[in-house]
Amino acid sequence: MTALWVAVIIAAVGSYALKLAGVSLPESVLNHPTVQRIAHYLPIAMLAALVITELFDGGQRYAVDWRVLAGLAAGVLMLILKRGLLVVFLVAIGVTALLRLVG
């Protein structure tokens, strides 16, 4: 079994274990205010970091594709215009694909 398979299985089973813990642990553990605040901030900090690494991470060096940046900028415009997730997503990949086609 390759390392990648092992990693896939650990991540998959781990994710299920987290969900199971959520419906099994005594409520007092998860309802602690500090624990809840951390849990609330966790996806916010990580999603922000993921946007950055998706855009600039070239494997321990900075790398940017301006077409992806432009696609994301178009996506941000859709977010500001309060469009749904699907529109944001389609516009972002559409603009990137179009720029790649012409440039």
Binding site: A3, A7, V8, A11, K19, G22, N31
Partner: peptide
């Protein structure tokens, strides 16, 4: 590939907290 595990799991922590209202 093991570097991908903590990122995926830490993002999944919120699902554990959804367990409280769902339960």
């Amino acid at each position: 590939p093991f570097a991908a595990i903590p990122a995926a799991l830490l993002l999944g922590v919120r699902n554990a907290f959804y367990g409280v209202p769902v339960t």
